[in-house]
Amino acid sequence: MDINEIWQRFISLLDEEPGIVTAEWRISAGIPFLYLHSITSDRQEIEQKIKRCAVRAMRGKRLNAETIFVRAENEQWVYRHRFYVPQEKMFCCGNLCSDCIRFR
Rank of each mutant, 00 (worst) to 15 (best):
N74C: 04
F33H: 13
N95M: 10
H81A: 12
R102T: 12
P18E: 15
V70S: 06
K49C: 00
Y35C: 00
A72I: 06
R82H: 09
D42A: 07
F10N: 05
L34V: 08
V55K: 12
R59S: 13
G30L: 03
D2Q: 12
R9P: 00
E88K: 09
G30Q: 05
M90T: 15
R104M: 08
K51M: 07
W77K: 02
R82D: 07
V21N: 12
R80D: 07
Q44W: 02
V21D: 14
G30T: 07
E24C: 13
L96M: 06
I50C: 03
A54Q: 04
W25N: 15
A23N: 10
F83C: 02
G94W: 05
F103N: 12
H81V: 05
M90F: 02
M58R: 04
P86W: 04
T40P: 01
M1R: 10
L13M: 11
N64F: 11
A72D: 00
E88N: 01
W7S: 02
F10P: 06
S38E: 04
W77A: 00
A72L: 01
I68M: 11
Y84P: 01
G60D: 11
D42R: 14
R62K: 10
E17P: 01
L13H: 05
I101W: 04
L96C: 04
R104I: 14
I6A: 13
R80V: 01
C53F: 03
L34D: 06
P86A: 10
W7G: 01
V78I: 12
R59E: 14
R52Y: 03
D99K: 04
Q44K: 14
A29C: 00
L14V: 03
C97M: 10
D99I: 04
C93A: 09
D2I: 00
R102I: 13
